[in-house]
Nucleic acid binder design. Sequence first.
DNA 1: TAGTGGTCTAGACCACATA
DNA 2: ATGTGGTCTAGACCACTAT
Lengths: 248, 248
Amino acid sequence: MSLTTIPRYRQLKELIIRRISTGELQPCDRVPSENELVHSTGVSRMTANRALRELTDEGYVERVAGVGTFVADFKTGLHVLEVRNIADEIAKRGNRHSTKLLSCDEVEADENAAEVLQCDLAARLMHVRLVHCENDTPVQLEDRYVVPGFAPGFLDTDFTDTTPGAYLSSISPLQEAEHVVRATMPDPLTQQQLDMQEGEPCLVVTRRTWAHGRPVTFARLCHPGSRFELSGHYAPPGAEPLALEQQE
Amino acid sequence: MSLTTIPRYRQLKELIIRRISTGELQPCDRVPSENELVHSTGVSRMTANRALRELTDEGYVERVAGVGTFVADFKTGLHVLEVRNIADEIAKRGNRHSTKLLSCDEVEADENAAEVLQCDLAARLMHVRLVHCENDTPVQLEDRYVVPGFAPGFLDTDFTDTTPGAYLSSISPLQEAEHVVRATMPDPLTQQQLDMQEGEPCLVVTRRTWAHGRPVTFARLCHPGSRFELSGHYAPPGAEPLALEQQE
DNA sequence: TAGTGGTCTAGACCACATA
DNA sequence: ATGTGGTCTAGACCACTAT
């Protein structure tokens, strides 16, 4: 702990972040304006402006001049790995996304699931397994566990038109995520479900996601190596990109 | 183009970014202080402060209260994929990094190299191939091309104690990077050079990096699937992380 | 002691959107 | 006409570092 007082703009930011994290402020809800913060907290407008501006940079809120400040919807994430909604990626390539549901039920947490999701052994978990196809060719086998209570209607969702990931991020903002990418050989069942050649490797992404301060879902995403690649692009903020895309 | 004038803090930022990108300001060089900017450009101190503060957030400079503002060394990047210096990663795990140099010479650009590096066909390129080992076990086969002129002393560098990537980023700040991750089966030579089992897949990362506004290096990093994984962690900025590490 | 960054204020002008 | 965000100013106080 430092003895110096916490700056007022930081206090303001944390106040607003807390209201968002607890769900008191939902996506698209209005956030107090600069003037309202000036009157309610006694800071100067520049200080309120800095707090709200930094929250904008950090993706918590969106601001529209002349209109107001609103809680951002977290559907589009700035994830470390550019593994977003696979349905969106397929659509962006102009192809058709479809889904084959393999299973969707409640299970008891095994040792591994209990550890990564920080729940009791044998706790009830929601479990869904499905194959994502691009123009009817399998490109991802999704095997996902979800902590109960976080997503009440999860098992009743129609996953043929809503990706499990999309459904979960529509419920609550993502706070934190952890990814691991590996190359492995598939087991025979996986190989068959993804319609893979003999001897073809898998690109496997496992992802754990936090919301409301605790892990809520764990997913293992398995892709045929011959039909899938992960790409990422890094450009320093504040400068116009040098290469490709992004005309607007 | 908008008709509204560009804000002064943005002009200041772009001025300083330009001085860094062109190499006029090198890493660790001193950047004009807020007061100097006030006197030299006529802005108020708050405006100079905003410019320098945003450059700090964006990783261009580092500021030390009471001392000054300095160009950041870009060795530690905030890359999209957490593929930094493999030697550092190995050291962080408490293991010993070593290198086997396979080849190091000048070659003519083939069609692919000419395209990704935006140079003429048959242009001279520097080319290095080496194996990175962790405690004498191979973990990465690096195959890298570098545009001539960018790194004059490249071929004379002793890559047993300096990673090619580390050498390149010490020369000039990285501006932009592009990654692709794939799972493939190795060819027999690669399999042998990485001491891999029969039927073991590779995790392959290809990366292209820009500096001074043009691509300068292209690398193919091939890892044994059984001994390597890529991990990433995303936490929203401005909030204290929920999980693991990072106590201070 | 002088210079640096870190923060904060109380005003101001502007473009824009809404009613 | 009012409220919003976007920017800018000319001061100010502080903690810190260097000399």
